[in-house]
């Protein structure tokens, strides 16, 4: 009896989380998969017709939005790394006992509602605002130059909004780097750069890897930034899905598009994991 209990215990432990996943992830996912192959509308109802053309039609009509979303996702993710790494590095190694304060400061803006932050952005970046106004009056920028309602604004917004998802894993990875290991590198004739390049960087790559996954996926499927900061040419696939679902009640199309997006993201992540997520990469970086 006691042994049986012992054998069952681990399964009992995963039960709450497992159930949660099944109810709120697996079931909707299966259901969505089923909806994505239906035809119909809200008034007449939807029928399960195994209508695979929902997928091909979606790609036909919105292929350019998929490409744009992946492209924006890529740029924003790379920008996130470029911004997050130095910040995380500084906090992990240079901030001393004020680490948590700095980390908190970095995350502080994200305690404020996204919409408020975006409105602040719009105030700052408006055509005649505090940034662009003076530059224009000094003739450093053409008169009708604008940042808002452009791809640049969308990518900047995405970068800014998902920065913490990059900073935190990198910070955690850097924090875990044993400073004695870094000292060992110095001791073995590595200068600052070599110690970083051969030891700190490879040891923090798992954090970058986690950060990329945590950033790239939500960035690519985001729709808020494009709708608030973008113009007519910056629609992302998330906006399309949102419109199809909420405005048009085209549940089947919306589901098919979501699944296509999911497949593309998984593909991208797997390719990335295969290319960069292995031991060999870390090892090569260390040589």
């Amino acid at each position: 009896m006691r042994r049986l209990k012992g054998a069952v215990a681990p399964y009992l432990l995963i039960l709450p989380g497992g159930l949660w996943l099944v109810v709120f992830f697996a079931v909707p996912l299966v259901y969505m998969a089923s909806v994505s192959l239906m035809t119909g509308n809200l008034i007449d109802g939807f029928e399960q017709t195994w209508h695979w053309r929902n997928y091909t039609d979606g790609l036909d009509v919105y292929g350019d939005k998929f490409v744009r979303s992946l492209w924006y996702g890529l740029i924003a993710t790379v920008a996130c790394i470029a911004l997050a790494y130095p910040a995380a590095y500084w906090i992990a190694f240079r901030a001393g006992r004020h680490k948590s304060t700095w980390l908190f400061m970095l995350l502080l803006p994200f305690f404020v509602s996204f919409v408020l932050r975006t409105i602040a952005w719009k105030l700052v970046l408006t055509d005649q605002g505090p940034v662009l106004g003076p530059l224009k009056s000094w003739h450093l920028l053409p008169k009708d130059f604008h940042v808002l309602d452009s791809g640049f604004a969308v990518v900047s917004g995405l970068t800014y909004n998902f920065l913490p998802f990059m900073v935190l894993p990198i910070y955690v990875a850097l924090e875990r780097v044993d400073h004695r290991v870094v000292e060992a590198a110095y001791d073995l004739y590595a200068g600052r750069f070599a110690a970083f390049r051969r030891v700190v960087l490879p040891l923090s790559l798992p954090g970058v890897f986690a950060g990329v996954i945590m950033t790239f996926v939500p960035v690519t499927s985001d729709y808020v930034n494009a709708s608030v900061l973008g113009g007519p040419d910056n629609t992302m696939i998330g906006n399309v899905i949102q419109t199809e679902y909420f405005t048009n009640s085209e549940y089947a199309t919306a589901s098919a598009l979501s699944f296509t997006l999911m497949a593309l993201l998984l593909l991208g992540i797997f390719a990335y994991a295969r290319a960069l997520g292995t031991k060999d990469v870390l090892e090569a970086a260390g040589r």
Binding site: D178, R180, V181, E183, A184, A185, R198, V199, P202, L203, K279, L282, E283, A285, G286, R287
Partner: peptide, 11 residues
């Protein structure tokens, strides 16, 4: 080093 400080990512 105390506890060696070997480079964990290298052979």
């Amino acid at each position: 080093f105390q506890s060696y400080a070997l480079f964990p990512h290298m052979s």
